[in-house]
């Protein structure tokens, strides 16, 4: 056979074939290509978020007032839960890199365990994300949306350690619902293609009456004052705003309305954390596939664990993106 293969005299030279450019294997290099392009995609999303935020810089929702919940605990704990989620993801990054390291030493058992822990970490993160979405969609206090699409929230001044502090009040706490004047229109009651969304719990009229009956309740609008807090209106102004401008009672957030402020905030939150969550989800699926490959001994037979390394790159990238999402959605 040897006689049929022409020798070109380039064997062992840089362009003689068989050498790896940049000393990285094909697979790893392609993973880096993908990561760079995906990083640009994510930064475009985050930059778009920044654009909208700069556009409404004096009325953007305050993240610390939006994400304040921790599962199984009552009360106001901003940041704690996301910090926990961040830690979980960094931790699963660590188990992943330990799996890669064990792979270099061809320790099948260790790789199996570390991959397993990585998958568990990913699942905890996705679960937390789902819980966070659920809490955000359900909302907490409720608010009134104005004709111009602004949000009016309610609260009262309470005495905390001798200091007057503005504390939010839920719509349900001071408004009496009448119900009855209108039922939800469903397609089965009329033309089949005409239906409407779930009706708000209260009408603006009812909210106004409730507000009028409770002397201590005040309205605050979206405008941030010099201390970086939302502006609280006087009693007369509160009543006037609800009467003149209120059009819809909103509770929670979706792509159209957002009780915490600008609907854009909710849109970007769902889109960016959703896109990231989808990356985590696909990462978990890929990790599970690799996990089974490790158990089956695929990489033992191949005599190298580079596949674990390539998937590891993707998994660390997901962690990397989260670090930025964490900063720009929850901290800044």
């Amino acid at each position: 056979m040897n006689t049929t293969v022409a020798t070109t005299g380039t064997e062992g030279k840089t362009w003689g074939g068989g050498s790896q450019p940049l000393k990285a294997s094909y697979g790893k290099m392609m993973m880096w290509f993908f990561i760079v392009s995906d990083a640009l995609t994510f930064s475009a999303f985050l930059a778009a978020y920044g654009f909208s935020r700069f556009k409404f810089i004096d009325s953007w929702p305050i993240a610390d007032e939006v994400f304040t919940h921790v599962p199984f605990f009552h009360g106001n704990y901003p940041m704690i839960y996301v910090a926990f989620m961040t830690f979980i993801l960094i931790m699963s990054s660590v188990t992943m890199v330990l799996a890669v390291d064990a792979g270099h030493h061809m320790k099948q058992k260790a790789v199996t365990w570390y991959m397993f822990l990585t998958v568990i970490g990913g699942l905890i993160f996705v679960g937390s994300q789902a819980w966070e979405w659920n809490t955000f969609i359900k909302g907490e206090y409720g608010a009134v949306q104005t004709k111009g699409g602004n949000i009016l929230q309610f609260g009262e001044y309470v005495d905390v350690d001798g200091e007057q502090k503005f504390k939010r009040v839920a719509v349900a706490d001071f408004v009496k619902g009448g119900h009855g004047e209108r039922t939800q229109h469903q397609s089965k009651n009329g033309i089949w293609y005409v239906s409407e969304g779930i009706l708000p719990e209260y009408t603006v009229e009812e909210v106004y009456n409730g507000l009028a009956a409770h002397e201590n309740v005040l309205v605050r609008n979206q405008i941030l004052n010099e201390e970086g807090e939302k502006t609280v209106l006087s009693r007369e102004e509160s009543l006037k705003q609800i009467k003149d401008n209120g059009t819809l009672v909103v509770h929670g957030a979706n792509l159209k309305v957002n009780e915490y402020g600008s609907p854009l905030f909710a849109d970007f939150f769902f889109f960016i954390t959703g896109f990231h969550g989808f990356h985590v989800f696909s990462g978990v699926v890929i990790n599970i596939i690799i996990f089974f490959n490790v158990i089956l001994g695929t990489y033992e037979k191949r005599k190298n664990y580079e596949m674990v390394e390539k998937v590891g790159l993707y998994w660390h990238f997901v962690d990397l993106v989260w670090v930025f999402v964490f900063t720009f959605f929850y901290l800044v």
């Binding site: 940049l22 000393k23 290099m29 760079v36 990083a39 930064s43 654009f51 409404f56 810089i57 004096d58």
Partner: peptide, 29 residues
């Protein structure tokens, strides 16, 4: 070389994009 290819491509394009969008957002505000 690999390090620079990955990092500088990202850093350069992202800085450009972020600058353009934030500048424009501030202008509209």
């Amino acid at each position: 070389a690999l390090r620079r290819m990955v990092v500088w491509t990202g850093v350069f394009l992202i800085c450009y994009l972020v600058f353009i969008l934030l500048q424009e957002g501030g202008y509209i505000e």
